[in-house]
Design a protein around this nucleic acid. Structure first.
Lengths: 107, 107
DNA sequence: TAGGTAGATGCCTTGACAGTTATATAACTG
DNA sequence: CAGTTATATAACTGTCAAGGCATCTACCTA
């Protein structure tokens, strides 16, 4: 019940959300991120380490560069958590989704 | 772009998530929450203040008691934020939703 | 009104964490 | 190999927030 939710804790940091945003349309080297945010390179590297530990990003080496990209699993988990509150603001459409969701479960 | 998102920052605290969970099925006085969590009453009151400041809960007085309840708006906002990443893990059903969403926009 | 209950607030301590600079590591280039 | 580029790590510092205890306020009841 409302266990870890590492994603939530890690993304409380605005800079980390910005990083995710920069990664939204594909992998990028650290340098790009440093350029995008207004922070020192070590600071960015640290945020990336935190994001990685939470499973929110993944890295791949390309020569001296490290290409980071989003790993969606923790976000999906966050989404599931949110789902248990969604009825508070849900619209017709959301109710359709809920309905279909339950139908899907049943099979 | 990825502005405040107060909800995210406030809900990074696990105890505050627990409080929200306790409020999920209706309003409750502070005492109930204190009983539910394993914390001092002042600590709970402080968390409630933070939640209130973020618009995540609302209070109503009943004699000496204060009845707290969820206010969904900030959660809906968080949901919107998440939406921009949802395509990373979306299923068939989600794609249907997206489609309908866009249709709805168009009218 | 005195006492009790429900909750909020003030003050203080402590720990975590973000940011900086300096330095280390690794790979490419001449 | 020497130098340079790209990133990570280390050591240090400052800030801030969470928790505890004590206290204050409001309302209820005998």
């Amino acid at each position: 019940m409302a266990a870890g939710l590492a994603a939530l804790e890690v993304l409380a940091e605005p800079h980390r959300r910005s990083i995710l945003e920069l990664l939204r349309d594909g992998e990028r080297p650290v340098g790009d991120l440093v350029a995008g945010l207004r922070m020192s390179q070590p600071a960015v590297s640290k945020h990336l380490r935190v994001l990685k530990a939470a499973g929110l990003v993944d890295v791949r080496a390309d020569a001296q560069r490290r290409l980071y990209r989003i790993r969606p699993e923790p976000l999906a988990e966050l989404d599931e958590w949110l789902a248990s509150y969604r009825h508070f603001w849900s619209t017709q459409l959301d109710r359709l989704e809920d309905h279909l969701d339950r139908r899907r479960q049943g099979r």
